[in-house]
């Protein structure tokens, strides 16, 4: 009968009206990230890094820029490490190719800013700041 499909459709939407909703209430309820989640910024551990530059070489978009210096012993050392999230494709090639496993995703995906500058991240400074905060936090607990 003509109109049967229309009535079935109405039934479906009415049923949905009373069902549980699929909305995620995002800022209050944070999404549960999977273990393999690729996102956020690159987190570097500067002590572990041997400044080989493989991450930068493997990046398809050139979003990693690093500068190395030679110390007194003639060993290469990292002096600058910049990650441009604006150019990043999140392909994971840098992390996979790191021989020391010293970079990973920090998974803090909500870092919107008002300027493109905010997307360029000085990873060494971030790591040092984090360490300082930990030290301070640790000192506080010690007291």
């Amino acid at each position: 009968m003509y109109g049967k499909g229309l009535l079935t459709g109405l039934g479906i939407t009415l049923r949905e009206f009373f069902r549980k909703k699929a909305t995620e209430r995002y800022p209050e309820v944070r999404p549960k990230l999977t273990e393999r989640f690729r996102g956020g910024k690159l987190a570097l551990e500067p002590e572990k890094c041997i400044a080989c530059g493989l991450c930068s070489l493997n990046c398809p978009n050139g979003s990693i820029r690093l500068v190395t210096v030679k110390d007194e012993a003639g060993k290469r050392k990292l002096s600058e490490y910049e990650y441009d999230a604006g150019a990043c494709m999140y392909c994971n090639l840098c992390i996979e190719n790191c021989p020391q496993k010293c970079i990973r995703w920090d998974k803090k995906f909500d870092f919107a800013g008002y300027d493109r500058k905010h997307l360029i991240i000085d990873c060494i400074a971030v790591a040092n700041a984090k360490k300082a905060a930990e030290r301070e936090g640790g000192a506080e607990t010690h007291e």
Binding site: T13, L14, E16, F17, K21, T23
Partner: peptide
Amino acid sequence: VAGFMQSRL
């Protein structure tokens, strides 16, 4: 109503 019928809030 639109939201509820589309399984949104």
